[in-house]
Structure formats: C-alpha cells, structure tokens
C-alpha cells in the first residue's frame, strides 16, 4: 500500500559562535585610478558564493558596477583575517566588514569630492557611478573621475573595515544570557509517499520558507535552500553511516549513499525577507537554516501518512519496515531508564 502525507517543520538557529568566542572579520579595499576596486577578505570561498556576495555588497555601497569589483580571499599572505567560514556567519559578519571597508574608503573620497564640488562631504552620496550632493544633484562627479583625482593628489585610496559580533558568555550554571548576535529562521513543508510493502519513502514535494533577512543574490540563496534541503533529505532517509566496533564500515560512495538527482524532488525555495537591522542591507546567512528542518519535516509527513512517528535517522526502507512491524528489530534500543534527567 502506498500512503501519502504532508508535514511541516521549523527551526531557529543562533547565528555565529556566541559564548565569547572570537567572531569578527576584517576587509580591505583599494581604489584604482580607473575607478575599479580590489577587495581582500580572509574568508574562504567554499562554493557557497562568498566572493560574489562581498563584491555585490561593495558595488552597492560604492555605487559602482559589480563588474568593477575584484576580490581576493583566504590567503594569509595577502588578506586580512576574517575569521572562519562557518556558523552561517559569512553574509552577516564578513558582509558587514566589507561595508565598513567601503565606508572607510568613502571618507577621503567624499572629502576630495567636497573640495571639488564645493559642498559638504557629509551630504554626498555614492550611487549609479556618481558621487553627488543629495540636496543639489547638479553638484556631482563620476566615481571614475574622482578615483583618478584621488590618485593624482596622493590621497588615501585604501579602506579597511573591522566588524565583530563577539558576544559575552552565558552563565555557566544556567546558560542564561544573550547567547547570539542574531537568529535565523526557517520552516519547510514536505509531501511524501510511503510504500508500506517495501518501506521506501519518496519525497514528492519539498518547499522551504527560509528567512534571508534580505536576499543579496536571490539565485545563490535559492541554491543554498535547494542544496541544504537535499543534504537534509539524505540525512533523513539515505545516509546510513554504519559504525561497528569503532569502524566506519561503509566508508565508500558505493556503500554510503548520498542523494542523486533521481532521489530528490525539485525543492521549491520560498525566500522570506524579514529585515535584520544588524545585517548588511538587512541580510543574514541561510546555509544551515536551509538544511536543519528537512529531516523532521519529512518525518512529520511520514507521521501524517502512517499515523506512526519516525524518531530516528536515517529512515531507510529497512528501518521503516521495522517501524511498521514487518521486520524484526534486533538492535538493543536505548530506553528512558538509560537516560535519567539530571538533577535540577
């Protein structure tokens, strides 16, 4: 018999490290005479799109074309330390440091523009390739011309931005306190079909509503959402790390199975944008939030289909048949007696 069900699952994720662990980033930026900029940041491009994201933020903040940005990342011989790439912190921490580097560079640029335009530097805005008096738009100079002017006059053409979200620590005995700089949010919905004869669970539909704060690059956010959900699906249903007497028995991709294109639905990304005033242009990370709710979402859909709950991973066909009482469970199960709640 094949039964269908729909389930939902949610999560929150404390972004960054918390607990007084160092959580900072530094970005350097240099203005060339032709108005192009070079960005140095010590964070790693893993494939998530960090280089692109930082370049977009810099282009926006300086009001220049994205194509005029170039970035060098993660090289102790060239870049400043930007902290690790983990804890979904890159957009939030490394992104903010890039904005601060731009603002540091804009100070001497605005000073020169103010001199040339005979206007108050504080009233100048950088947008659409121009540096312009926001009260008197006719007073403007192109970013490119200003860049040339900066070099010609020997002005400071390098900016640096440091951003830290290092928190205090929580109380050692109660963990009470401000644990994280901000939090990320996501909810997912799955529709599954369970074959009660074979134990096979097929995910027919997976929709992921993930709060990006502000999607700096929507396609990259979608990529995180789609890829994260598929990693979560693998964790939920397929990826069976068999450890016997300390040995990882199936440590090969022929025996440790990760999802192929044939194992997954077309994940539907639903980007939610709840502006975070502490993030760059309101943005925060999505990599982990997009991964976390998938397994329980699928399990709740299975419960909706069967009336029986999966409280273990992975729900492989064999383990599903055990759950359904069609295969004998031979493993000794941990019981409530094995896990007393510690004293208050």
């Amino acid at each position: 018999m094949k039964l269908r069900g729909i389930g939902v699952g949610s999560m929150m994720y404390g972004l960054g490290y918390g607990f007084a662990r160092p959580d900072f980033s530094t970005t350097d930026i240099e203005l060339a005479p032709d108005g192009t900029v070079t960005i140095w940041n010590g964070a790693s491009e893993l494939g998530q799109g960090l280089q692109t994201l930082l370049c977009q933020l810099v282009a926006e903040e300086l009001g220049i074309p994205y194509e005029d940005t170039f970035i060098i990342t993660a090289d102790t011989g060239r870049t400043p330390d930007a902290g690790p790439v983990s804890a979904s912190r890159s957009t939030y921490v490394q992104g903010n440091s890039a904005l601060k580097a731009c603002r540091d560079l804009k100070k001497p640029m605005a000073e020169l523009a103010g001199e040339l335009l005979k206007t108050d530097p504080d009233q100048l805005i950088f947008k659409k390739g121009l540096v312009q008096d926001q009260n008197e738009p006719s007073r403007s100079i192109s970013f490119t011309n200003l860049a040339g002017g900066m070099h010609q006059r020997g002005r400071r053409v390098r900016g640096s931005g440091y951003h830290s979200i290092t928190t205090g620590d929580v109380d050692k005995e109660t963990s009470q306190g401000d644990a994280y700089a901000t939090y990320a949010w996501a909810s997912q919905l799955a529709e599954v079909e369970v074959d009660t004869e074979t134990g096979q669970v097929t995910v027919l539909r997976l929709a992921s509503a993930t709060d990006a704060g502000k999607a700096i690059n929507p396609k990259m956010v979608e990529g995180q959402i789609e890829g994260g959900a598929v990693q979560g699906l693998g964790f939920a249903l397929m990826e069976d790390m068999k450890i016997e007497q300390g040995e990882f028995k199936n440590a090969k991709l022929s025996t440790y199975l990760i999802p192929t294109a044939a194992d997954v639905p077309m994940v539907e990304p639903l980007i939610v944008e709840v502006y975070d005033p502490t993030g760059p242009y309101g943005a925060k990370g999505v990599a982990e939030p997009a991964t976390i709710p998938t397994a329980p979402t699928i399990f709740n859909a299975i419960a909706n289909a069967l009336g029986q709950r999966v409280r273990f991973t992975p729900a492989t066909p064999e383990k599903m048949l055990k759950l359904l009482g069609k295969l004998e469970e031979k493993e000794e199960q941990i019981t409530i007696e094995d896990m007393p709640y510690p004293e208050p």
Partner: peptide, 19 residues
Amino acid sequence: IIEGISGNLCRCTGYKKII
C-alpha cells in the same frame, strides 16, 4: 535529464538548477 545525470553526484546544489 534526471536519468542522464543520475550518475553524477553533486553535494551543493540539490540538482534542480543543473537540471
């Protein structure tokens, strides 16, 4: 298309944008 790339593992994208 899915069948055509089912022998190619990707751990990042979730395959949709490739398809």
